[in-house]
Design a protein around this nucleic acid. Structure first.
Lengths: 240, 240
DNA sequence: CGCTGCTTTGAAGCCCTTCAAACCAGGTGG
DNA sequence: CCACCTGGTTTGAAGGGCTTCAAAGCAGCG
């Protein structure tokens, strides 16, 4: 059920049988959610975190003027609000982009893990630090990259992260969100994102259509984005 | 010596004598660094983290075209690369903005803490999650706020964070960096930042001059920035 | 006293936004 | 089975915020 999460951990660290049991034992109720549903509201005290079993989520903040900025996109196997274990409440909200299933992980169980399993604790800590690394890369995009580079970079990131959980290959992946939602990740208007996607299409790099990204030239897409996957820490932790 | 770091922890959590001893025992060599010196290079494997005793640091990434984006500014008492404990190498570099003193904290000591002191481990984990929260708020600035709002927001953030360690009050704080460096935080050109600072000055909100920020109207500055300090998690962890 | 690095100002240009409307696909009901 | 509606996509035209390029101003220092 949470194979994706385990696969993601095993990519970087071995998991002992005991640690795997602890993770499985920490999993509580599973909930199915429709698309575009906010299920964690900023500022609300939380007593459990969640694992995303399948679907796609967004961390976002609303602005006073009604604008919205998505600060992170989550894919299967992510722990979208693991950080609420230490933060107690979140500075942002969490919504589904697509229909999703999430599993609840009570903070009490996480606390037990921190008391008994330091290695697993560090693996979980790593997961939140990886999120932070992705936040930093988005800062680079938002601060310095042009519109076309931002769009290309996010598509490269999603391709790389989805590939880890077997939901993407070099030819593309499912991305059943609207251009408006995509633009909320990039700090751009939907209108301009539409033009940029046309440019990427006409350059033969990739096509975002009908809820799917079809990549014509992954190397070219990565080159225009200046994409370097180092910030995703895809290598094993012990030899990094 | 690391009073600032302890003060920052105590703001949110109590520290037992044992925990304080563990922190002090983890501190190793202290190093003094000149301004504008990169002492952690991206991609290099690290065996220790650092605590910033005094001074100001920046996390940054260089772009292919020579541009630079600062993704985080650190003040006294911060653990600027605590996340290298789980990440092993960093996706970004770390430089001094001002002359600084840092203390090295070997990862081996941190590992001992994770084995023996789950509560202190969670406090350290929190520190890295707070950094991530600040990264998210910078994404909001870079993605959605206007130039004047970005500048005002960063000044508000620094005021609030420096106040915690006794280096700022409502009337201002020392900020001995150049406008060019400030602009590298904001994703703007130095020229435009200069104009924006003039606007803030002429509005009577604040003045950034001679390495010092003098705040004329903190409430007004916060209003123009739409600054909400919730993301800084300044309250106690047990009652949040 | 002139060098150096930072700040400030001006003018022109461009990337992206804003506003507006047409287009298109899928679903619903007559 | 087509008319209609709705939400998303696409295109056009005008405008604005920020960048770029250029140069002057200014303070600290050898």
């Amino acid at each position: 059920m949470i194979e994706a999460a385990l696969a993601k951990i095993r990519l970087r660290d071995d998991l002992s049988a005991e640690e795997e049991t602890a993770i499985l034992g920490a999993i509580g109720e599973v909930v199915s959610l429709p698309a575009r549903h906010t299920f964690v509201h900023r500022g609300v005290r939380l007593s459990y975190s969640t694992v995303l079993i399948d679907g796609m989520l967004a961390r976002y903040k609303d602005m006073a003027d009604g604008q919205r900025q998505i600060t992170h996109v989550h894919v299967s196997g992510d722990f979208p609000d693991l950080h609420s274990f230490t933060l107690k409440y979140l500075d942002h909200s969490l919504m589904t982009l697509t229909p999703s299933r999430i599993a609840k992980v009570p903070h009490a169980r996480l606390e037990e893990i921190t008391k008994k399993m330091p290695r697993l604790t560090r693996i979980l800590w790593f997961a939140t630090n990886l999120d932070a690394s992705i936040h930093r890369e988005w800062e680079i995009s938002l601060g310095r990259r042009t519109a076309i580079q931002r769009a290309a970079h996010l598509l490269c990131e999603l391709q790389a992260r989805l590939q880890v959980v077997g939901q993407a290959d070099a030819s593309g992946f499912a991305l059943p969100i609207t251009q408006a939602e995509f633009s909320e990740c990039l700090g751009l208007t939907p209108v301009h994102v539409n033009r940029v996607l046309r440019d990427l299409r006409e350059a033969g790099l990739c096509e975002f259509r009908g809820g799917r990204v079809s990549i014509g030239d992954l190397a070219g897409l990565r080159a225009t984005a200046e994409f370097d996957p180092a910030y995703l820490y895809l290598g094993r932790r012990d030899e990094a």
